[in-house]
Amino acid sequence: MAEITKVKASIGRDRYQTVIQTDKHELIGDEPIENNGTDLGPDPYEFILAGLATCTAATLRMYADRKGWDLEQLEIELSLQVERVGVSQSTNILRELHFVGNLDDEQKAMLLNIAEKCPVHKLLTNQVIITTKQI
């Protein structure tokens, strides 16, 4: 059976400040001031990129450790751009990886390939079905 991940979110009258609860953590999501938020936490797009960054980092760390490679540090920069034309839109995410350590070109190429196999990358690049219901 597939694993189920759950998150709860609650918003009151404080503009866009949203309290997000996971099993063990509480986070604040918000909108930037220029979008009439209070900028007390990441916006929704930043949370998506943070999830992809975290998953990519953990996946590459596990892979490099299993191979015994000298990956001292991995730095990941992500950017997201949504292009809207009429009623359709496309989303482009740029993921840039910087490897620190004694890695050859073949190892770096393999890590770039493995980055596309992290579970969040797969989630974002495959069909996603969202069902909304009132509880």
Rank of each mutant, 00 (worst) to 15 (best):
R15E: 14
H25G: 07
R66E: 13
A109R: 14
T131I: 11
P42Q: 15
N92C: 04
I76V: 14
Q17R: 15
S90P: 07
Q89P: 02
T18N: 03
E34A: 05
K67P: 05
K24R: 14
K67Y: 10
V82G: 04
L80F: 10
G86C: 04
Q21D: 14
A64F: 01
R13K: 12
C118R: 07
L74W: 06
L71Y: 10
N35L: 12
V85G: 04
P42M: 15
Q17W: 06
L124C: 06
V7F: 07
R84W: 00
L78W: 04
K117P: 02
A109P: 10
V128H: 10
L49P: 03
L97A: 08
C118P: 08
S90E: 11
E106D: 13
L40M: 12
I76L: 09
S90C: 02
P119F: 07
Q17Y: 04
L27W: 12
E26Q: 15
I11H: 13
G41K: 05
A115I: 00
L78Q: 03
I33Q: 11
G51L: 06
A2V: 11
T125L: 11
I130P: 12
N126T: 15
Q134T: 07
I28L: 10
N92E: 14
L103F: 01
T131K: 14
D104S: 02
T5D: 01
P119I: 08
L52S: 01
K117L: 03
K133L: 10
R61W: 03
N92K: 06
K6V: 12
G86P: 01
V19Q: 15
I135L: 09
A57T: 09
L111Y: 10
L94K: 14
D105C: 01
A58H: 11
V87P: 08
L40Y: 12
T22K: 02
A53F: 04
T91N: 12
L27Q: 06
L49F: 03
A57D: 14
E96K: 14
T59M: 10
A53W: 05
G86E: 13
S79P: 03
V7I: 10
K122E: 15
S88R: 06
N92T: 13
E34G: 03
D43N: 15
I33V: 11
E46D: 02
I129Y: 14
E83M: 08
G51R: 06
